[in-house]
């Protein structure tokens, strides 16, 4: 029976994991261990619901509710001096529980601290745009939409940013294969030459290691070389290769494979 490959995550997977292997966890510390973070968390939790919070690798992580994001970012910007939204994007957990996790990476230059604000949304749910608070979210949210298909409400220009406008599919989803899908393979052919040219041109080969052994125009087969354009049937004779110039070169006479003697005595 063929091995079952899950369709909800088609990314590369470890081909072997020890049965008894338990991966360690990056140590998480209590927020009270850092007084700056503790005060920040106090301010946030006095106005909004905080579901979970901890310190990981020197940065505080705060889980909030999806509907609070605009208010929380406004609060941390105006009252807690986290003046820069360094980065925001999503993590795909669709295979696990049909959710996306959205993270906002904030930086305070006066405190020299970084916090990460996170929340989960259901698949298909939109997020609130924070473009009015941080202009950098304008492009981040567009990138997130492009890569995951998560829309941002109240965004002034919710369009794709890196992929073409008429692209189908969202590349960073775990269900999207690395080499691209069927649409990707025909995109340029359809666009440049039209659908009627599909038979002549064929799909775009997106596997960089692809070799077509029946194509003598572009590929040579080592040991079975044929002139360019030959129709390959597969039952070609091996090409006999000789590396000796006609008439020999200095000090070397004509090499004859049959006349040569193979030394098979290892003690010779």
């Amino acid at each position: 029976m063929r091995a079952y490959t899950p369709k909800d995550n088609v990314q590369a997977k470890a081909y072997y994991t020890d049965r008894f292997y338990v991966s360690p966890q990056v140590p998480r510390h209590d927020v009270s261990s850092d007084e700056v973070f503790a005060a920040d968390l106090e301010t946030i939790s006095s106005k909004f619901t905080v579901n979970e919070s901890y310190i990981e690798v020197g940065q505080m992580v705060v889980y909030i509710n999806a509907s609070d994001i605009y208010g929380v970012l406004e609060l941390v910007r105006d009252e807690l001096s986290y003046t820069q939204l360094t980065e925001m994007s999503a993590i795909d957990w669709l295979a696990k529980d049909n959710t996306f996790e959205i993270f906002y990476q904030m930086l305070s230059m006066t405190k020299r601290k970084r916090i990460r604000i996170k929340y989960s949304i259901q698949n298909g749910q939109a997020v609130d745009s924070v473009n009015k608070l941080f202009r950098s979210a304008d492009w981040s949210e567009r990138e997130m939409f492009d890569m995951f298909g998560i829309e941002a409400n109240n965004h002034p220009f919710m369009k794709r940013i890196l992929m073409p406008y008429d692209w189908q599919g969202h590349p960073l989803l775990k269900t999207y294969p690395l080499q691209g899908d069927e649409f990707a393979a025909w995109y340029e052919v359809d666009k440049i030459y039209g659908k009627e040219a599909r038979d002549i041109i064929g799909p775009e080969i997106r596997d960089t290691a692809n070799i077509d052994r029946y194509d003598s125009e572009r590929f040579a087969r080592l040991g079975f070389e044929q002139p360019k354009g030959t129709k390959i049937t597969g039952d070609e004779e091996p090409t006999v290769q000789t590396y000796q110039e006609d008439g020999g070169v200095f000090l070397i006479t004509k090499f004859d494979k049959d006349a040569s003697k193979i030394v098979d005595d290892p003690q010779r």
Binding site: S23, P24, V26, E56, V57, V61, T86, R116
Partner: peptide
Amino acid sequence: RPPVGEVYVATESPKGELGFFIN
């Protein structure tokens, strides 16, 4: 196989803050 966890590390590249977020 690094441990389970998340990290965001920023360095000062010639152009500005170059950050890597790894989950």
